[in-house]
C-alpha cells in the first residue's frame, strides 16, 4: 500500500506563459506531485495547470497561499484536505473526501464528486456542477467569520448534511427531470447547526428526525441569490432560471441535541 515509486521519474514540467506553470502528472505519485506543487507555490507561481491527473490523492493539501490550480483528469480522494487558501478547479470529476477539514479556499468541480464532500470543513467554498455521493457536508462547522459553503448543481445520495454543525449546503437538482425529486434519505440526520437549502420539494420521510422545515425569508433569498450567482458564473448558466423554482429550507430543531441524555 502506498509504495513510493522510484525517484528517477522526472517531473516533466512545460513552462508555458510566464505566470502559469504546466505540470504533467502522468507518472507522478501523490507524494511527488505534492512535493512539486509545494516547490512551485513557494517559488511564487500564481497559476498551475495539472495535466493527466490519474487519481493522485491529497492534491492541494498543505498549500496555504492563494494559488490557482486547474486540474485536467481525475484527482483522487482528499482533494484539498486541510487546505487553507488555494483555488482549485477540476475539469472533470472529483472522488471521495474532497475538501476534508478545509479551512479556506475554493474548489470548483465541473462534474460529479464522490462521498463525504466537505467533511468537517470549517471554511471555504465548494461548487459541484453535477451530483455528489453519500454524506455530503458531513459535520461541517462554522466559526466566527468562517462559514463553509457547498453548492451542488445536481442531486445527492443519502445522509446529506449529516451531523452538520454549521455552514451552508445548497442542493439545486438542476439535472432532475420534470416531476422528479431528490431521492436522498436521512437528510440532516444529527444536524445541530447550519442550514440546508434544497431546490424543489422534499418529503418529510426523507429527513432526519433532528431537522425542521421552513419557508425561506428575505435573508435566505439574499444568501441564495449571491451563492447561485457565483455558481452560475463558474458553470455558465442562468441564475434567474434557477431562482424561479421553489426552495425548501432545512434547519436543526435543536442546537443542543444531547441535552437530556445523562444521569449524574
Amino acid at each position: 500500500m502506498f509504495k513510493e515509486r522510484p525517484s528517477e521519474i522526472s517531473v516533466s514540467s512545460l513552462t508555458g506563459e510566464s505566470d502559469m506553470t504546466k505540470v504533467d502528472a502522468r507518472a507522478l505519485s501523490h507524494r511527488e506531485l505534492n512535493a512539486r506543487l509545494r516547490e512551485l507555490v513557494s517559488s511564487g507561481v500564481q497559476r498551475i495547470e495539472l495535466h493527466n491527473v490519474y487519481g493522485q490523492r491529497y492534491i492541494g493539501t498543505d498549500l496555504d497561499k492563494p494559488v490557482k490550480i486547474d486540474i485536467f483528469g481525475t484527482p483522487g480522494n482528499d482533494l484539498g484536505a486541510f487546505m487553507d487558501g488555494p483555488g482549485i478547479t477540476v475539469h472533470g470529476n472529483a472522488q471521495d473526501g474532497c475538501g476534508n477539514t478545509m479551512d479556506n479556499g475554493e474548489i470548483v468541480i465541473h462534474g460529479h464528486a464522490g462521498d463525504i464532500l466537505g467533511l468537517s470543513a470549517r471554511g471555504g467554498k465548494i461548487f459541484v456542477k453535477e451530483d455528489v455521493g453519500y454524506r455530503a457536508g458531513i459535520h461541517m462547522k462554522e466559526y466566527q467569520d468562517k462559514k463553509p459553503t457547498v453548492i451542488i448543481g445536481g442531486t445527492a445520495q443519502d445522509f446529506f448534511g449529516e451531523y452538520m454543525a454549521g455552514g451552508i449546503l445548497v442542493l439545486l437538482g438542476l439535472n432532475l427531470k420534470e416531476g422528479e425529486g431528490h431521492t436522498a434519505n436521512f437528510i440532516g440526520t444529527g444536524m445541530h447547526g447550519g442550514v440546508i437549502y434544497m431546490r424543489g420539494e422534499v418529503q418529510e420521510f426523507q429527513l432526519g428526525k433532528e431537522v425542521g422545515v421552513a419557508e425561506l425569508n428575505e435573508n435566505d433569498y439574499l444568501t441564495l441569490e449571491k451563492l447561485i450567482g457565483e455558481f452560475t458564473c463558474h458553470f455558465d448558466c442562468a441564475a434567474q432560471e434557477i431562482l424561479k423554482c421553489r426552495f425548501t429550507k432545512l434547519f436543526p430543531l435543536h442546537l443542543r441535541p444531547y441535552g437530556r441524555l445523562y444521569a449524574y
Binding site: D78, D96, G97, N100, I116, L119, S120, R122, R135, I138, H139, K141, E142, Y143, K146, E162, Y163, A165, G166, G190, H192, G193, L255, R256, P257, Y258
Partner: peptide, 17 residues
C-alpha cells in the same frame, strides 16, 4: 475548538472518513 459558544461539541463515534 473553533466552534460557536455554548453549542454541544460532538465527537462522533467513527471518523467519517
Amino acid at each position: 475548538r473553533m466552534i460557536p459558544r455554548g453549542t454541544d461539541a460532538l465527537s462522533p463515534a467513527p471518523q467519517h472518513d
